[in-house]
Nucleic acid binder design. Structure first.
Lengths: 158, 158
DNA sequence: ATATGATTTGTTATGTTATAACATTCACTA
DNA sequence: TAGTGAATGTTATAACATAACAAATCATAT
């Protein structure tokens, strides 16, 4: 499992905070964080890493939910819509967002050695891609910013 | 088809230049731009848009090549390795690169309205993602930078 | 309280994307 | 011209994702 990250912060409290934020957000927006949706978010927060849709589906099955693919994809898409889950396009997998702040675009650093994924944020509207897009009159609705490579810890162990 | 781009430049000469560049590159590196590989690159250059692997496979079938999936994927991966084709991760599709310059990272602006894809370049090592990665000691081997949205022409037609 | 409309969930089936594994052919060169 | 490594052919299957429709649940306005 991902010991490195766990050692860097209090994973439990971090997880709880995000879950509460999700509940508050849904309440405020009159959206429903139903049992399936909460279970999916919880699973992603627990793992603290990217999971494939079918891994999530297996988790749902174990937890007693219906385990047909649409169940997982619906929950994932709901959570993505509200910004608490992101898809890692290069891995076809999904990861919880620990700072669901709409004014920032997520940036992912994917370590090919330890499979750890670090989420960074860049200031929307100030980054050079947004600027580049502005220059050509392109209106961005979604940004995918992913870097694959080797993280510091793994570089040190080479 | 993609009239907008065709009107912006001499598509034919552009296509030929890239194909020649690919041939020169392979010759220099002692790599083989075999018939299948050339056919795939040619198809992508002709279309001047992103194609799915199975569309390419169908093109190969029509051209008389073997049309099992591995044939297309192998050719695509070869062309990606040498930098003449990129994968658009958000679309699971592949597009020819018109400025295969290793010191630049490709950036794609994907218009959801007209399906046009514009490739931009950013200076590797100077962009803020590389800088962000450097700060955390992350060594990037591959960058995926894709923006979905609406292009200028389509915005004007709303 | 209850009809009604909207949202969510269940379920079946299928579509789409990609790779594993191994056999065969080809091109080079020793 | 035999041996080697690269490329291709081929079969099968894995992995990812959605369409379509039925059933249940929920919200709320009368």
């Amino acid at each position: 499992m991902n010991l490195k990250k766990n050692s860097l912060h209090d994973h439990n409290s971090c997880r709880q905070k995000v879950m509460e934020a999700a509940k508050a957000y849904c309440e405020q927006k009159r959206l429903k964080l139903t049992p399936v949706r909460e279970a999916v978010l919880n699973m992603l927060l627990n793992e603290h890493q990217a999971l494939g849709a079918y891994e999530i589906l297996e988790g749902l099955r174990v937890a007693g939910f219906s385990a047909q693919p649409p169940v997982a994809y619906r929950a994932l898409n709901f959570l993505r819509d509200i910004g608490f889950v992101h898809k890692i396009e290069q891995l076809n997998s999904y990861i919880a967002c620990y700072h669901p702040d709409m004014s920032h675009s997520p940036v992912f650093l994917i370590c090919q050695s330890c499979n750890d994924i670090t989420e960074k944020s860049i200031d929307r509207h100030k980054d050079e891609f947004s600027i580049m897009a502005d220059e050509t009159g392109f209106q961005i609705t979604n940004l995918v910013l992913e870097a694959k490579g080797t993280c510091q810890a793994c570089l040190a162990n080479l």
